[in-house]
Amino acid sequence: MKKSDIGIIAIMYGICAFFFFMTVELPEEAQTYPRCLLAGLCVLNTLYMLRCLLRLRREGFSNDLPQIFSGFMHSQFFLVVLCCIGYMLLMYAAGFYVASIVYLTGVMLLLHVPRLHILLTVGVLALLIYAVFTLFLKVPLPVGVLFS
């Protein structure tokens, strides 16, 4: 049995419990189908747990998380994630194009991309998105609360 299996089993049971709790609010006729699916997921998860337990008896317990996350660059990963969240917030405030330019430049600077490449990437992407989404698809991209 691997350490990651515990997480998978717990999350799956958690999802089952959460959705089961939600089905209580539904009328009786609408409960049947989701509950059938939940029962199916529960059975499969229990079978998986039993298989893991059999493996535990046969092969013992192993921590596979270092293998799964081998070479994981914590600071880089969370920096990128934070920038993505920041980009979403900035887009709401300052609009799509301003936020995109700031986001692209910021992330690429943080990831040590040469400045010329940053300039080219920002220019190409801005043009591409303007041509495809604004001119062709006529999508009203967010202008932001500051400029609206």
């Binding site: 990128v80 920038c83 980009y87 709401y92 986001y103 990831l111 998105i129 999508v139 991209l141």
Partner: peptide, 28 residues
């Protein structure tokens, strides 16, 4: 092409692509 360029570029396309579906943030 470096992953350092691909990461923000793909994310940008993901955001604009999902926003374009119904023009709202929920999809994003």
């Amino acid at each position: 092409l470096s992953d350092a360029i691909l990461i923000p570029s793909i994310f940008l396309l993901c955001v604009v692509g999902s926003y374009a579906i119904h023009n709202n943030y929920t999809e994003v």
